[in-house]
């Protein structure tokens, strides 16, 4: 009863969660065992994108801050794998040869935390359009920084032919990699679920709804928003780390601001208000990309049109539409009146 409105969504969310968890576990392995290894690749990419989208949703959905530079973190995470690999292949840093996983992951986390902290300190002093544009500009700054690193391929990118190794776990095996990605996503969604109901999460949401009010009850929102901003960057950096272990080739192009737009597209299309929204968004994104690009090389057109239409006509994304549908299909007896 105390959570009447949230309770309305519960059934929808529960079903979506169960369907997602099962589908992501069963389908790729089924296809893989059936001898179709290609699908495992698609699903790995999907899950990695979903992790990144969830990361963005922490600041966007929960905090209401439209950060448009999150592709930079994915890129930094991937380069945190690529650059050490480059050195261990071509010599120069032998110390990091074995159990390089800790180096890769550690580097990814450290760099992303630092970048998020520095840019967050500056950009979070602004709001609205300023915040959007500033995060965009900082993201693009990293893009140009990587482009200018000639040693690591600059514009042309970098080949990765080595995977992160941890004790007992080697990401070299595609099945292991998928399991790691999948479990990471589950853990992340659960973590975000906890956060959204925690004191920290409540403060973030309060600041989203009414920041002036939060100040008037004595809350310094900035500290919490900065923490969320860094956390969000870390999650995307982690997605980048996984991506670096997934692809054989990385390039600055993956950090371009239009990539940030794509992640945002996933979050919004899936529904920023729902826990599984970003995951749904990632699924739709991958399906569209896959289906449309089979049909026409001009598939971005349909992508763009879909984006415009979903903004104009579909509030709350797919998960919003789903939960509305769930509510209306359930009897109207749940209507509450006291």
């Amino acid at each position: 009863m105390p959570e009447a409105t949230i309770g309305k969504q519960h059934t929808a969310v529960k079903w979506i969660s169960i369907v997602m968890i099962t589908a992501l576990a069963v389908i790729p392995f089924g296809l893989y065992l059936a001898g179709n290894a290609f699908w495992l690749d698609i699903f790995t990419r999907l899950v990695i994108l979903a992790i990144a989208a969830c990361g963005l949703n922490l600041i966007l959905g929960l905090g209401g801050l439209v950060s448009f530079g999150h592709a930079a973190y994915i890129g930094l995470g991937a380069y945190a794998v690529g650059i050490p690999v480059y050195h261990s292949t071509y010599g120069g840093m032998d110390a990091i040869a074995s159990y390089n996983g800790f180096v890769h992951l550690g580097l990814a986390m450290a760099v992303c935390a630092l970048f998020a902290l520095v840019t967050g300190i500056i950009s979070l002093r602004t709001r609205g359009v300023n915040f959007i544009m500033i995060t965009m500009a900082f993201g693009q700054m990293m893009f140009y920084a990587i482009v200018s690193l000639e040693t690591y391929g600059g514009d042309d990118g970098l080949t990765i032919d080595l995977r992160s190794e941890f004790p007992l776990i080697t990401l070299d095996n595609p099945v292991t990699l998928y399991i790691v990605c999948y479990l990471s996503l589950l853990a992340l969604v659960f973590l975000l679920h906890r956060i959204s109901h925690s004191r920290f999460g409540l403060i973030l949401q309060g600041a989203k709804f009414n920041e002036e009010r939060m100040g008037a009850i004595g809350v310094n929102c900035y500290r919490y928003q900065l923490t969320a901003f860094v956390l969000s960057g870390l999650i995307c950096g982690y997605a980048g780390f996984l991506l670096g272990n997934f692809t054989t080739f990385i390039s600055p192009e993956m950090m371009d601001w239009t990539r940030s737009g794509e992640i945002m597209f996933m979050v919004i299309l899936g529904g920023a208000a729902a826990l599984w929204g970003p995951v749904i968004g990632a699924v739709i994104f991958i399906v569209l990309e896959f289906v449309l690009s089979e049909i026409t090389i001009y598939w971005h057109l349909y992508f763009g049109l879909l984006l415009i239409f979903s903004v104009l006509f579909m509030r709350g994304g797919v998960s919003g539409a789903l939960s509305r549908w769930f509510n209306s299909s359930r009897s109207s007896g749940t209507q509450r009146q006291a």
Binding site: L60, V66, F68, G128, V129, I132, T258, G261, M264, F265, I268, Y298, H300, L301, F303, G304, L305, L306, L307, I308, V311, L312
Partner: peptide, 24 residues
Amino acid sequence: HLYHRDHLDHVLATFGLILCIDTL
């Protein structure tokens, strides 16, 4: 149709426009 919407909607819809115009 977007003027009365929030900035997030502006950003997303015009991002969609970019994809459309680039492809066209």
